[in-house]
Amino acid sequence: MMTRILATQIAFNWRRNLSAISGTVILLACLFMVAVGPSLVAQNPYDVMQLNLLDSYLPPVWLEGGNPNYLLGTDGQGRDVLAAVIYGTRISALIGLSATLLSCVIGTFLGLMAGYFGGWIDALIMRVADIQLSFPSMLIALFLMSAFGTGIDKILISLTAVGWVVYARTVRGSTLGERQREYVQAARVAGLRDAAIIWRHILPNVMTPLIVVATVQVGTFILIEASLSFLGVGVPVTQPSLGLLIKNGFDVLFSGLWWTSLFPGLMIMAMVFGINLLGDFLRDELNPRLK
């Protein structure tokens, strides 16, 4: 019931908030691009048979020498920049979303354990979290990737390793509060097992603040992944994300071939900006105290 009232109220405010609407529109556009984009471009940029080296380094179509087949120009292998951006966005978005989901699940689980059971479990989890929080996420991820080597699975592990902390802390805090409430006492008196109390009674009540954390984290993860890939310790060359496309563009930037790096960067910016606009709105809605 409360959830429904909250949802109605958020929907009501959403319609009156320009930045929330623009954020949603930007994200829907990105989603559209990721979902149907590949069928809109003629070329699959990673099928070598479809590449034509004679078409390499063509400028965007509005410049002299541009080819209407390649709206945003081509890179050194004759790859359509627009197609590469569409495929790259898929990889970047996929990594951002999956790593956030993994972090959320693991962090929430650990936070519930720490908050509900307390004692040494709590002390251990929170000390690890404290130590980790005193180092920048980017540096930890960079260090892990340099040890693991490139690969999407390894990026997911590294990002989850840095991402769980914020959920664990948030959930632990709320769990400590909820644990004292009457309904938990009642459930315990009724003879429910700990697992059932945590899963059915506490979890639903500590999830709301996580929505904002998770939203913003998708954007952070997309940026960290891009940085790692730019440094060459992120995705493998066969699965270039937007960050790796920018890295490839960096090598030819000094020759004035700017389009291979400008467009992937704009794409990251649009995606993360949309996420942050929505995240800001949700934060205001779900934490009325900060309004």
């Binding site: 940085s227 730019f230 920018i246």
Partner: peptide, 20 residues
């Protein structure tokens, strides 16, 4: 809005565009 854009930018890309 500018500051929100600032946190949404990949820093290395900003550097590259400044170089360009």
């Amino acid at each position: 809005s500018g500051s929100l854009l600032g946190v949404s930018l990949p820093g290395f890309w900003v550097g590259m565009m400044l170089i360009w």
